[in-house]
Design a protein around this nucleic acid. Structure first.
Lengths: 211, 211
DNA sequence: TTCAATATACCGGAAAACCAGTAGAAAAAA
DNA sequence: TTTTTTCTACTGGTTTTCCGGTATATTGAA
């Protein structure tokens, strides 16, 4: 089955993680680490003219945000399979990454075995999620993560201004619109966030990372 | 100078980080990795009857909190030097760790050179902080971290209730005090936080991690 | 082009928040 | 024990928010 080993590209800004991944993967001849990068830009440049089977992608890169990165990589190389990697498990981020096309997701406490398993699965076009990640995803369905309300541009803007402590009138002046309009927006915001005043509006906005 | 290499103990719950550290340190004969653990409990047990020169301690262990861990290790082995390691850089945590006795601190994006340098420095009894960490520490002195207003117990409590979207009257009922009293507290809170309404009160409270 | 979503704007009224100042009782610190 | 801080409470008044509606212009996607 494994005539050609699966070529892997590692993207992570931590040298020690890169070395660790290489070591963990070096024992297994089904997988070969082709190269590695510590930032998004170099990775994308490389993929411009080279190809790999699987990208091991850290979510927290110094230059490009992980969710964006998935999109960019797949734009360049639609056939590549991406396996997300991160230390912590933010349900919303994992969800976004999946939406953008990652085929698997592991936390960094994964063992060597799990790593190889994930890579081979993903390479075959299957999905693979670490057990903790699965748990998180399961929770996130029931939890509040799923109901992050979609705010319009104007609403997001006004939300920020409210958080800065500005009154309806001040905001209206700043945006050259009627205070009544601002109030309508604020009311829509509160309805979407299911709260009944500005204080808790800000709290849930922070919780849902909308600010 | 380096007759005996410095013996190092690695504590990190991520196998790939452990492998990475080992690899990064394997090139240098001034340092030898004696053993490694993935949790706090096993580490402390080991230190009960064995000794090492330097402990590379990840801040985020599954069982014991990093700040506590420093204290426990030094209680067991007062002569050991501890070098903190973490992915992110929380000024408050770094400060606490230093207070508890770590001699150095690195982010996980450190290079092999920096790692060895840090270990040798720390071993000699000196301090060593990665450049990013230094920046963070410097900032944390000048930045807003310092002017976290001291809230009284009652104020903290009421702040939480405000964040939950409760009105003055509701809070008063809940605490069996007059609404007027609650209002006084809220006004004091706003004054201390230098804001003029509940929305921004919550925002800065979140920023300053008071909620 | 048509339709849905978004941004705009209004009325009237109730509720809550905000402001400025004062002040006594209780608890904690000196 | 004295002093300071914290918690309590008030008067009286202004401003702002919040609520339940309604409604039109504009924009963007199908």
């Amino acid at each position: 089955m494994q005539h050609n080993p699966i070529s892997v590209l590692i993207v992570d800004d931590h040298p020690m993680v890169i070395e660790g991944l290489k070591t963990l993967l070096s024992d297994d001849d089904r997988v070969v680490v082709q190269t590695h990068f510590t930032n998004g830009k170099d990775t994308l440049e490389f993929l411009e003219h080279e190809k790999v089977d699987v990208v091991l992608l850290d979510v927290n890169l110094p230059d490009i945000n992980g969710v964006e990165m998935v999109k960019f990589i797949l734009e360049k190389r639609a056939t590549v399979q991406i396996l997300g990697l991160s230390t912590y498990s933010e349900p919303s981020i994992i969800n976004q990454m999946i939406k953008n096309g990652v085929k698997g997701y592991l936390l960094k406490n994964a063992t060597s075995d799990e790593l190889v398993k994930a890579i081979t699965k993903v390479y075959q076009g299957d999905f693979y999620f670490g057990s903790e990640v699965q748990k998180i995803l399961a929770d996130s369905v029931t939890q509040e993560t799923i109901d992050i309300p979609k705010l319009t541009r104007r609403e997001t803007h006004i939300l920020r201004l409210i958080a800065e402590g500005k009154t309806t009138n001040t905001i209206a002046e700043e945006l050259f619109i009627s205070p009544l309009t601002v109030e309508t927006h604020r009311r829509n915001l509160m309805q979407k966030m299911e709260v009944s005043n500005a204080a808790s509006l800000i709290k849930v906005a922070v919780e849902k990372k909308l600010i």
